[in-house]
C-alpha cells in the first residue's frame, strides 16, 4: 500500500485482517446499488439541468432509468435488511456487550467527541494525532449516516413507488414531503460519499489515490500500528494480535479493487461535477 507496488517487500510484511468477507460483500453490494441509484436518479433530481435529458437518454430514456432505479432500490433495501438482521442476530447470540459499547463498537461514545476535538487540534499543529482504535469518529459517522439515509431514503422511496397503496392510509400531502426528503437526502448522500467519504478513505494524501482494504480486507501491521495504535496495543495486551494475522492480500483481488475503485471514484466525481453545474446553472 501507500503507493508502493505490491512487490517482495510487502510479502515480507505481516498483514492483519480488518474486514471480514461478509462485510466486504455487503459493502460491495451497497456501493454498486448506490452508484446505480445515483446514476439513474440524478437526471430526475435535476430534471431542468442542461445535461439531464441527455444523461437519461444515454441510459435508455426515463422509462428505463425509472425501472432500473426501482430495481437498484429494492436490491439495496434487501442488503440493508440482511445487514440489520445479521446485527440483531449477533446481538442476540453472543456479541451483545462488545457490539453496543467499547472499542470494537460502532456506537458513538464520549471518547469519539474528545478524539474529534484532538484531531482538529492535530490538524492545526497543536497536539499529537489521537490514539484511534478500531473505528474512528468519522468512520462511525459514515456508518450511521448511511444507516439513517437507508431508513429515510428507503421509506420515502417506497412511499413514492406505491402511491396508490400508501394513499389508503395517509393523506396526499405525504407525497410532496416524500419527494422533497428523498431528493434532498439523496443529494446529501451522493455529495457526501463522492467528496468527504472518498477523501477520508481514498483521496487524502496518505491514501492517494485509493485504499483497497474494502476489497482485500487486510492491512499491513505497520499501518495498524501507525493509524490505530490503540487497537494495536489492545490486541497485544489481550494476546489477540497473532490471531489477527493473515497471509498477504491476493494480488488479483488488490488489482480488482483498484480497477473497480477507479471506476467508482471517477463516476462519483463526474456526478459531483454535474450536480455543481445543475446548482449553478
Amino acid at each position: 500500500m501507500k503507493g508502493e507496488p505490491m512487490g517482495t517487500a510487502s510479502h515480507e510484511e505481516t498483514w492483519v485482517e480488518r474486514f471480514a468477507a461478509i462485510d466486504r460483500i455487503t459493502h460491495a453490494i451497497l456501493f454498486t446499488t448506490f452508484l446505480g441509484l445515483s446514476l439513474t436518479g440524478l437526471p430526475l433530481l435535476f430534471a431542468d439541468a442542461p445535461w439531464a435529458r441527455t444523461m437519461a437518454l444515454l441510459m435508455g430514456g426515463y422509462g428505463v432509468t425509472g425501472t432500473l432505479h426501482r430495481v437498484f432500490g429494492f436490491a439495496m433495501l434487501f442488503c440493508f435488511a440482511f445487514h440489520v438482521g445479521r446485527v440483531v442476530f449477533r446481538l442476540y447470540r453472543k456479541r451483545g456487550p462488545t457490539m453496543l459499547w467499547g472499542p470494537d463498537s460502532l456506537v458513538p461514545q464520549p471518547r469519539d467527541l474528545f478524539q474529534m476535538y484532538d484531531h482538529f487540534m492535530y490538524f492545526l499543529g497543536r497536539g499529537p494525532r489521537p490514539q484511534f482504535d478500531r473505528y474512528t469518529y468519522w468512520e462511525k459517522f459514515d456508518y450511521w449516516a448511511v444507516f439513517w439515509g437507508m431508513g429515510i431514503i428507503g421509506t420515502s422511496g417506497l412511499v413514492l413507488a406505491f402511491p396508490e397503496f400508501v394513499a389508503r392510509f395517509l393523506p396526499g400531502d405525504v407525497f410532496t414531503i416524500a419527494l422533497l426528503v428523498h431528493g434532498e437526502e439523496a443529494l446529501l448522500a451522493m455529495v457526501f460519499i463522492f467528496t468527504i467519504h472518498f477523501f477520508n478513505g481514498n483521496l487524502r494524501p496518505e491514501k492517494f489515490p485509493m485504499d483497497t482494504v474494502m476489497f482485500t480486507g487486510r492491512i499491513p501491521l505497520h499501518e495498524l500500528q501507525d493509524e490505530r495504535p490503540a487497537e494495536y496495543e489492545r490486541l497485544v495486551r489481550e494476546g489477540r494480535l497473532e490471531h489477527a494475522f493473515v497471509p498477504p492480500p491476493q494480488r488479483r483481488l488488490d488489482l480488482f479493487g483498484r480497477f473497480v475503485g477507479a471506476i467508482a471514484i471517477s463516476l462519483g466525481l463526474v456526478m459531483v461535477a454535474l450536480t455543481l453545474i445543475a446548482l449553478l446553472a
Binding site: 437526471p43 430526475l44 433530481l45 430534471a47 431542468d48 439531464a52 435529458r53 437519461a56 430514456g61 426515463y62 422509462g63 425509472g66 413514492l160 407525497f175 410532496t176 419527494l179
Partner: peptide, 16 residues
C-alpha cells in the same frame, strides 16, 4: 409543477 414528480419526469421528455 416542475417541482413535482410529474413535472420532473415530463422535463426529461417522457410523455407517459
Amino acid at each position: 409543477y416542475r417541482d413535482t414528480f410529474h413535472g420532473k419526469v415530463s422535463s426529461l421528455g417522457y410523455e407517459r
